[in-house]
Design a protein around this nucleic acid. Structure first.
Length: 286
DNA sequence: AAGGCATACAACCGCAATTTA
DNA sequence: TTAAATTGCGGTTGTATGCCT
């Protein structure tokens, strides 16, 4: 039994929007907003379109303050830095560029910026954070770098790791055994040489909240166990086979590491918050 | 002028996450 | 608690346009 379609595919128009359709949608949105339901909107607005199509058209084209046209150098820099840091999370990147949509940025990246960067030597490895080798479970205690505001604060205020990512000289802190952390897959993989020649990767750290600590009583220590230290890129992350074989396939987007994600899903109040730390895992083998 | 190719970008699709009943 | 409905995201495709031969 498949999923019910969101609309009657035979009765909806597809393809480019006409000026008349745009006008209808805009007028309806100006008067009523979405009414909290995109699926029902086309019928109310007198449009023969799928609700998803209306939403996309509105968000990417019709809504006020959309910026079209050339990207500035500053925007280029933000996109590049964030892409290097968090990968193809276009909506997050778009949130740092007022007036730009995720679709816009995605298109811009795929058609122009990527090529531009590939042709230059200034951004080694401009691709998404590459998939890293798995870590040996019994080596390399993580070291924490304190987050500090950086010249890149324009986006680091949203994604705390992004600023620190570019700072290679932060003073390391040792992870205290009594603290509890989770590694966020929203972190970045950023190969950087360090002083002793070992390359390092950085991951955003999700600090355990009070709510999360409550989990200790039900599931035991939610500590950053050895098995959780795998260094994986922001995208392409696949769930380790060792835990929760029956759970849904792992999404590369909003997850945190394995059992934590599942426990949090079951226990809605126990969501961790994003902490202002970067974790660095030494990977001498690469 | 016509055909082929490259580029840009709007729009679609599938699926995971979230919300609602 | 569970299933259905809805939303949001990222990858991909389709098409219009411009350039080159």
């Amino acid at each position: 039994m498949g999923r019910a379609p969101c609309c009657d595919k035979n009765n909806v128009k597809k393809g480019p929007w006409s000026p008349e359709e745009d006008a209808k949608l805009k007028e309806f949105m100006d008067k009523h907003g979405t009414g909290g339901n995109w699926i029902a909107l086309p019928q109310k607005a007198g449009l023969r379109r799928c609700g998803k199509s209306c939403r996309l058209r509105w968000l990417n084209y019709l809504r006020p303050n959309i910026k079209h046209g050339e990207f500035t150098e500053h925007e280029d820099r933000v996109i590049c830095s964030m892409y290097a840091s968090i990968g193809s999370r276009w909506s997050i990147i778009a949130s740092q560029l007022p007036g730009r949509t995720d679709n816009d940025i995605k298109n811009y990246w795929n058609t122009k910026l990527k090529k531009k960067l590939m042709g230059s030597t200034t951004m080694a490895g401009a691709g998404p954070p590459p998939r890293a080798p798995r870590q040996n479970h019994h080596q390399h205690r993580p070291v924490l770098l304190p987050y500090s505001s950086s010249p890149h604060s324009n986006y680091s205020n949203f994604f705390p790791g992004a600023g620190a990512l570019l700072q290679q000289s932060a003073e390391p802190l040792t992870l205290q055994p009594q603290d509890h952390y989770m590694l966020g897959s929203s972190g970045s993989l950023n190969p950087m040489g360090n002083s002793n020649g070992a390359s390092a990767v950085q991951l955003q750290l999700l600090h355990a909240t009070t709510a999360h600590r409550q989990l200790q009583s039900t599931i035991g220590q939610p500590e950053c166990r050895e098995g959780h230290h795998e260094v994986l890129p922001a995208n392409n992350y696949t769930k380790p086979m060792t835990a929760h074989a029956n759970s849904r396939p792992h999404t590369p987007t909003r997850d945190i590491f394995d059992f934590d994600a599942d426990v949090c899903k079951r226990n809605k109040q126990a969501k961790p918050c994003v902490g202002n730390f970067i974790i660095t895992v030494n990977t001498p083998s690469c």
